[in-house]
């Protein structure tokens, strides 16, 4: 079973919930697909036993073969190839999306591809949780290609929890694609609800089963409860506003790690998810 933990809005508690759930459901795998700001292992604290570079194919032009026909730069939909007539032709790493089109159109067979690093995929294990973490290099503009690589590294034979990026854009879509169930963590504020509705557009479109975790459930408005009833989405857990949880979180401890009570609550949450998927 693959469970993705998403939210729409940032800072609602996705990572806290994902890591706690993993602790209570271990042995299990935890995948951090918030590759711009990966935080799951700050709460899990596994030693990274191994890591590998993540790279994309990047066009390299052999100037001995190039005759400056400009077919590559004409084809590139992103204007990512610069032609300096008579001098040099090169692709711009910040713009290139590695589609491979320039290599196909080149009549001189002058374009080959070399790997260009965009980040890392790191692996570790603690508390019976195998963690797989994507980390985007600073300065890379698109996180989608790295997010898309992660399912290839899902450990086999284990259930998987995916800690998603914030927002409801394409990296989130890719983080939800393989999921059997999507757990949406929200808070009862106009911001939480606004962004939750964006996330629900995606889960509807991908036809995913969803459930809610309402974090800081005792603040703000009750609109979230109405939304859940209207949309027929089960609220599977409510977590109250707690300075105790906030303080532990600040030091990198998730509720299921520091509290027997929360470990049991997250075990119950896992059971409820299993029932929903069945």
């Amino acid at each position: 079973m693959i469970v993705s933990v998403a939210s729409g809005k940032g800072g609602t508690g996705k990572t806290t919930v994902a890591v706690s759930l993993a602790i209570s459901a271990a042995p299990i795998a935890l995948v951090d697909s918030d590759v711009e700001e990966p935080n799951a292992n700050i709460l899990l604290r596994a030693d990274h036993s191994t890591s590998r570079k993540a790279s994309l194919p990047f066009p390299v032009i052999d100037m001995k073969k190039c005759d400056f026909c400009e077919k590559c730069s004409d084809f590139c939909a992103y204007n990512g190839i610069v032609v300096l007539k008579g001098l040099k032709v090169f692709a711009v790493p910040e713009i290139c999306k590695s589609c491979g089109g320039c290599k196909i159109v080149c009549p001189q067979d002058a374009i080959s591809e070399e790997p260009r690093d965009i980040g890392y995929i790191k692996f570790g294990e603690r508390l019976g949780i195998q963690i797989v973490e994507g980390e985007l290099n600073i300065g890379e503009s698109s996180s989608t290609p790295l997010v898309r690589m992660l399912p290839d590294y899902f450990p086999s034979g284990r259930d998987v929890i995916v800690d998603c990026p914030p927002g409801a854009a394409h990296p989130t879509v890719e983080s939800l694609r393989a999921a059997d169930f999507v757990l949406l963590v929200t808070e009862p504020t106009p911001f939480g609800i606004h962004d939750l509705e964006e996330a629900l557009v995606i889960t509807d479109e991908l036809n995913k089963k969803v459930g809610l975790v309402v974090n800081r459930a005792d603040i703000g408005t009750s609109d979230i409860e109405n939304l859940a009833i209207e949309r027929n989405i089960p609220i599977l857990m409510r977590i109250p506003f707690s300075t105790d949880i906030a303080e532990h979180y600040s030091r990198g401890h998730s509720p299921a790690e520091f509290s027997e009570y929360w470990r049991e609550q997250f075990a119950l949450l896992w059971q409820k998810i299993e029932e929903q998927v069945r």
Binding site: G10, G11, E37, S141
Partner: peptide
């Protein structure tokens, strides 16, 4: 601004 370090932030 947006969260993260991606193209919106850049």
């Amino acid at each position: 601004g947006a969260p993260g370090i991606g193209c919106q932030v850049i």
